[in-house]
Nucleic acid binder design. Structure first.
Length: 569
RNA sequence: UACCCCAUAGUGUAAUGGUAGCACAAGUGGUUUUGGUCCACUUAGUCUAGGUUCAAAUCCUAGUGGGGUAGCCA
């Protein structure tokens, strides 16, 4: 088990307190429970794309293997062919590797169909399982509610020979879907519904993405999962809280079969504000075209985050910081954003980009003249060096960096005000040009040649520094600004009878097509990340950007105390 | 209605019978050619009631609140 950057993160791991699963692993190691062996697995069902919640599980499972000298398998839990597809298998493999993890073994529950079948036969022979011929509706009635006890199936006492015969004929395809099931014979009076003779096999005449039409009976999760763990000698089978009630059944199968005893531990799944995390809902967003696909940059999927510009390191750092507990909780999406900022602040090269351009003409700057200015690529990383940017008479600045009637706390440009153009000159606004509708179309300014590079020899200070792009050299680009997918922190918080879809943020995507970038951005590569100074972190869209029509995605904004002040009024 | 799990600043987590910490958020100030970064400081917490103990966030009981469970889904 390896990551692409283990050393720096091991320090982070050491600094972090151990979560309860790690404490269990350490206790097992101390007690020599498995002769020093630690083996986990990440077991997705290939019926959807991985999301940030899966990343938590991936980091936990692969992280434990990594930190305790163990192994971690990738296992596809593909026991329900009706919902599964190889498209999902491929995306899951890609996402796990992109996150920086490499599995020790890659397996499919479907690899074990024959072994599973044989073990089921063994349980029948031991009198621990039987063929039930109740309909699904009858089964539900017989199971009973949680105030009382269930009723034994009338087929519960079929002879072993009859069970064996029927099971073999189920497998041979003699029956149609739903006609029979194989059930574990446990306890119809149990307070735990999972123990009221749970189904082990059902008939499904469905094509399986790996085994084709070889099988028409498929094992249920509870039967298949624990046995798969056991076959792979998994020591710590880590899953989410909703499987807590299944643990007695997990244990029951392994005990009755007397095979390697994996242990199941449950932790709380990840929730994040302003988004949804269930596969069902994510699928719904995709199918109803509320987003453009699983990899829409607004989606909390790994592929969406990747396209948005998130780094594997940022996601791992986030997963490490949120902790692992049994408490249901919801993390502020700001935590995730902060993890990205923390990394990109250190690594992303700085560039100038004007998203909503306003033309500035510097009247005392000679027409046709060009100056070359030197700009720092990353103040957090001197080794990133500098670059040259052209300065000319006509520039673009951000419309929001000018106010005709600015309040006193506004440090930027206004009539008669002087500001610094970053890595440029001080300029003073002398005139405001408007069209017939009164819209500002252009600013007239003068510059102070003595302030080249941004310092005034007379020592005078300006409060504001704004970014700019030479109009003549500007590269045109499309920039997509993303906001939270849902307006409310909790999208499920709706009026009675309404859907979480009511909470979709209609402004989660804003497309800007007239953006002006500094010339060095012309050759930006798909996926490449930059900080656009004073604005945020952006990446070249890996899917839709082209050399002649650049498309950038805003990954996350910079912290903006000015915007915060404005909001408060 | 039954059973299971959970409960610590706004949020998320630590303290594993012995000084309630940390991070994010929020706020104040400093530095700054990004209203970024960085630095300092401030606000703010053990659900309730009993019990055990020299000592309880921690153990026990009950209550309250939240979550989960009656698929031939995983």
């Amino acid at each position: 088990m390896t990551t692409d950057n283990p050393s720096s993160e091991n320090n982070e791991q050491d600094a972090r307190p151990k979560n309860f699963v790690e404490q269990i692993v350490e206790a097992d190691l101390a007690a020599n429970t498995h002769a020093g062996r630690v083996h986990t697995r990440f077991p997705p069902e290939p019926n959807g794309y991985l999301h940030i919640g899966h990343a938590k599980s991936i980091c936990l499972n692969f992280g434990i293997a990594q930190n305790y000298g163990g192994k971690c398998n990738l296992r596809f839990d593909d026991t329900n062919p009706a919902k599964e597809d190889t498209e999902y298998v491929d995306s899951i493999k890609e996402d796990v590797q992109w996150l920086g993890f490499q599995w020790d073994g890659i397996y499919f529950a479907s690899d074990y169909f024959q072994q599973l079948y044989d073990l089921a036969v063994q349980l029948i022979k031991d009198g621990k399982a039987y063929i039930c011929s109740l309909s699904p509706e009858e089964t539900r009635e017989y199971r009973g509610g949680w105030d009382g006890v269930g009723q034994d199936s009338p087929y519960r006492d079929r002879s072993i020979d009859e069970n064996l015969d029927l099971f073999q004929r189920m497998k041979a395809g003699e029956f149609s879907d739903g006609e029979h099931t194989l059930r574990a014979k446990i306890d119809m009076a149990s307070a735990n519904m999972n123990m009221r003779d749970p189904a082990m096999y059902r008939i499904k005449h469905v094509h399986h993405h790996r085994t084709g039409d070889q099988w028409c009976i498929y094992p249920m999760y509870d039967f298949a999962h624990g046995i798969s763990d056991s076959i792979e000698n998994i020591t710590h089978s880590i899953c989410t809280l909703e499987f807590e009630h299944h643990r007695p059944l997990y244990d029951w199968f392994l005990d009755e079969l007397d095979i390697f005893r994996s242990r199941q531990y449950e932790f709380a799944r990840l929730n994040i504000t302003h988004t949804v995390m269930s596969k069902r809902r994510l699928l719904e967003l995709v199918e109803q075209n509320h987003v453009t696909g699983w990899d829409d940059p607004r989606m909390p999927t790994i592929s969406g985050l990747r396209r948005r510009g998130y780094t594997p390191e940022a996601i791992r750092s986030f997963c490490s910081r949120i902790g692992v507990t049994k408490q249901n909780s919801t993390h502020d999406i700001a935590w995730l954003e902060d993890a990205l900022r923390a990394q990109l602040n250190k690594e992303a090269p700085r560039r100038a980009a004007v998203l909503r351009p306003l033309k500035v003409v510097i009247e005392n700057f000679p027409e046709g003249h060009e100056e070359t200015m030197e700009a720092v690529n990353n103040p957090e990383d001197p080794s990133a060096g500098t670059r040259q940017i052209p300065f000319t008479r006509e520039l673009y600045i951000e419309r929001s960096d000018f106010m005709e009637d600015p309040p006193k706390k506004f440090f930027r440009l206004g009539p008669g005000r002087e500001v610094r153009l970053r890595y440029g000159f001080f300029i003073t606004c002398t005139d405001v040009i408007k069209d017939e509708q009164g819209n500002i179309t252009e600013l007239r300014c003068t510059y102070d040649p003595e302030t080249r590079g941004g310092q005034a020899p007379d020592g005078r200070k300006v409060r504001g520094t704004i970014h700019w792009v030479s109009a003549k050299h500007a590269v045109n680009a499309e920039v997509r600004l993303y906001d939270h997918l849902f307006q409310k922190q909790d999208p499920s918080n709706v009026e009675e009878g309404q859907s979480y879809l009511e909470n979709l943020n209609p402004n989660s995507l804003e497309v800007l097509t007239q953006c002006k970038l500094e010339p060095s951005l012309k050759d930006a590569l798909p996926g490449e990340r930059f900080q656009f100074e004073r604005l945020g972190y952006f990446c070249v869209d890996a899917k839709e950007s082209a050399t002649d029509q650049l498309v950038f995605n805003r990954s996350v904004t910079l912290r903006d105390t000015w915007a915060k002040m404005q909001k408060k009024g």
